[in-house]
Design a protein around this nucleic acid. Structure first.
Lengths: 254, 254
DNA sequence: ATCTATTTGTACGTATGTATT
DNA sequence: AAATACATACGTACAAATAGA
């Protein structure tokens, strides 16, 4: 453990729990600790940092909120180093965009360059189980929706197709960013109910692109996969743009 | 806009501070609160939630760690809604990649598609101050470095050029992702000391690309800007790849 | 400039919950 | 089943910061 800290009045910018959290983080890095490794117990930290239980606990909450540690009760329990999960990272990043208004166009500007690149890299390298899973998903929007509920579900399913692809990326950065954009889009469409009114053209063309893409991925034709995805993105973008304009129109004064 | 709440299937076992944090978050969203708006005081929350001071405080720390609120002491103080800062969002996302090993190649695979897109959108739309600032940065690596220290600084400066461009993006998502990749790259090069040994070819070609890019941006030639950036990325990627291989070689047994 | 009220920040003792042996 | 080792939660008291009188 790092030596007990004396009160530095100069660095009043950070609260004490924040200082403690920072030090523990640095210490974990310095010690090259790995996920699963155990941190000192509460009691030990209280002694080492010469601080109260509350302060130490607040520091642990900070690290836990960031997804860096997890605590367990009971004997053999304690606080453990933890790799930040993808879900946690997405949730934290979503918060960043909460007060910045993203448009559908913003998201698609990213998708149209990123996703063709992804499928180009993936062509011919996907295991049969994944290809089967992808095909299974496409079945959920193979036919026109009968109800509004089903319409909503079809939107989600067609985005799940892309989420599955993103999860297959070898490049962790690429996989995360694409997965995140898909999540953003899912959130926006559900929140603004962009699946209403039903858009049969969007569904039909989407399903068709996905089927053709699957074939290209199976055959390992990277160029075709890239081209199909690019066309798919441009097409979906323009059709979704119509949806967004209509949704905005619903709330406009006459 | 995505929901700010962490929606997870595993929220069966949430600690009490986590439950409180979640409820407050939902409440903030529901009330359509904006940055600067004040949350109830500690005392009020203790009463409203019927929980101890410590529990409430831990909940506040969770929200604060995520960058969603800020607290101030004194009269008129309290806890205030806060827009997550770019720096905070970057730091939180960096944690995600800490245990996932990213390669230089991974980062460049993203940059080579994202950055040409960016400068294409920016061409002819940058105010003179920004263009001047960009030019000022390029001066820091206009000549070969004399010392190792200077070599390091030149690497950072040439990345700062890209960070400045990212900050000008109209698309918040695009700006964030590109800015983040640049920060990742800065961290990797500094950590692994990829500025050593000095690579004069990398510096010279980088400076040349940046100057030509600046001219295209000034003239509003989007096509040229895109093409120059694309070539720059491919070029830098291969040259940085050499650096990384050498750096790896330094630690390999003979 | 000093006091005062308000609000967060820190300390500490005690009791309870939980999982392992 | 019981003892043990740990985190979790509560209550109170007091310290520090800051705006306003």
């Amino acid at each position: 453990m790092p030596p007990a800290t004396t009160r530095s009045k100069t660095d009043a910018r950070l609260s004490r729990p924040e200082q403690v959290a920072r030090k523990i983080k640095d210490w974990v890095v310095e010690q090259r600790m790995r996920p699963g490794d155990r941190l000192p117990t509460e009691a030990e930290m209280i002694a080492d940092f010469a601080m109260s239980k509350g302060t130490i606990r607040e520091a642990m909450r900070i690290l836990e909120a960031q997804g860096l540690v997890k605590s367990r009760t009971g004997p053999g329990g304690g606080t453990f180093v933890h790799a930040v999960s993808t879900e946690r990272a997405r949730a934290l990043l979503s918060n960043y965009f909460y007060f910045r208004d993203l448009t559908i166009a913003d998201v698609y500007q990213m998708r149209r360059t990123l996703e063709p690149e992804l499928v180009g890299a993936l062509a011919g390298r996907l295991p049969p189980e994944v290809l089967d899973a992808l095909e299974a998903v496409t079945d959920r929007y193979a036919r026109p929706a009968q109800t509004l509920e089903e319409e909503r579900d079809q939107h989600v399913a067609s985005l799940e197709f892309h989420a599955l692809l993103a999860a297959q990326a070898d490049n962790p950065l690429q996989g995360f960013v694409i997965g995140f954009t898909v999540q953003l889009l899912t959130g926006i469409t559900l929140e603004r109910q962009l699946y209403e009114p039903p858009n049969e053209r969007l569904r039909a063309s989407g399903h068709d692109y996905h089927m053709r893409l699957l074939a290209a991925l199976r055959e390992g034709d990277a160029g075709a996969a890239r081209a199909i995805m690019k066309a798919h993105m441009e097409n979906a973008w323009s059709l979704m743009g119509d949806q967004e304009a209509m949704a905005a129109g619903r709330f406009l004064p006459e």
